[in-house]
């Protein structure tokens, strides 16, 4: 290794390495790098003293500033609740008629309701609430449990066939699978049910089937769906005479429903949503239903 020497042009030392007369400069690291390194080190050590950091034997050092993310978020959530209380209080305290007559409050219901609906309800009922196969249209179709906001609120609160103790309970029995009706009767009653919403199904050929289907319907189905098949809000049984179907209105879907039964589940939202939000969603849905009429 050749000895290092001072380079005449730059004034810096060389490393002492030489390749065909070219020598490598040993330029010192710029001072600003040292300054940055030292100040960053000082900052990090200070930060560990201010914030929770060093582990001990039984505990850890909590930091001089007493920072606690959980306490911070609890406070910031509480602030949010306080900010919203200007209108959540009104939603909780006022009755439905008063709120619906208050344009500024309804403006809040529509804006906040849209977000709440998108986050919690749209997955099943669709972004516009128009339903999906297996999940009812809650904007245009007749309601199963009742049309007024108080009933809608109760459904959101306890759910249907849900884990809630007071859940609404509704079940379409499996008339075919559980052998309550012979297969031929299942087919006849399906034909009759089709005629309820689509009278064009009835022809001279199937008049006998439809007549027998009507008797089977009266004996087995009318208790829940009503004598005319328009549904009953006490049982939550849907209207069979309109064009809205939860599980499909074609023959094979209806037959599947009669044969295997149905037991849709609407989760309970109590605990997940605050009472104010549940009421707000009921108002939002009722408002959309009114607008759709």
């Amino acid at each position: 290794m050749a000895l290092s020497e001072r380079d005449k042009v730059s004034g810096h030392m060389t490393t002492g390495h030489e390749w065909n007369g070219i020598k490598e400069l040993n330029t010192p690291v710029p001072r600003v790098v040292y300054i940055f390194l030292i100040s960053a080190t000082i900052f990090s050590v200070t930060w560990t003293i201010l914030m929770p950091s060093w582990p001990g034997i039984n505990d850890y050092f909590r930091g001089l500033l007493g920072a606690d993310q959980q306490a911070e978020v609890r406070q910031s959530v509480a602030e949010g609740v306080a900010e919203r209380s200007s209108w959540t209080d009104a939603i909780v305290d006022e009755d439905f008629t008063t709120i619906r007559a208050d344009p500024s409050l309804m403006q809040t219901v529509r804006e906040t309701g849209k977000m709440l609906f998108a986050e919690n309800c749209a997955a099943c009922h669709g972004a516009e609430g128009l339903g999906n196969p297996g999940f009812p249209n809650i904007i245009q179709a007749p309601t199963m449990w009742g049309d007024d906001p108080a009933t809608i609120m109760e459904t959101i609160r306890v759910g249907i066939n849900s884990a809630h103790d007071e859940t609404r309970y509704g079940q379409m029995l499996a008339f075919g699978r559980d052998q309550m009706l012979p297969l031929s009767d299942v087919d006849r009653v399906v034909t009759y049910v089709q005629t309820l919403s689509d009278p064009a199904i009835a022809t001279a050929d199937n008049a006998e089937d439809i007549g027998e289907g009507a008797t089977i319907f009266a004996d087995n189905c009318a208790a829940c769906h009503g004598e005319t098949g328009t549904g009953m809000q006490e049982t939550g049984a849907p209207n069979l005479t309109d064009q809205y179907w939860i599980y499909g209105g074609d023959r094979s879907s209806i037959r599947h429903t009669v044969y295997y039964g149905r037991q849709g589940l609407m989760p309970t939202w109590e605990g997940r949503l605050t009472p104010a939000y549940i009421k707000l969603l009921a108002l939002y849905v009722a408002d959309l239903r009114t607008a759709a009429k």
């Binding site: 919690n120 997955a123 099943c124 297996g134 999940f135 589940l265 989760p267 997940r272």
Partner: peptide, 8 residues
């Protein structure tokens, strides 16, 4: 958990 139904 329990936010949506099994069917969903």
């Amino acid at each position: 958990g329990d936010k949506y139904s099994d069917a969903w």
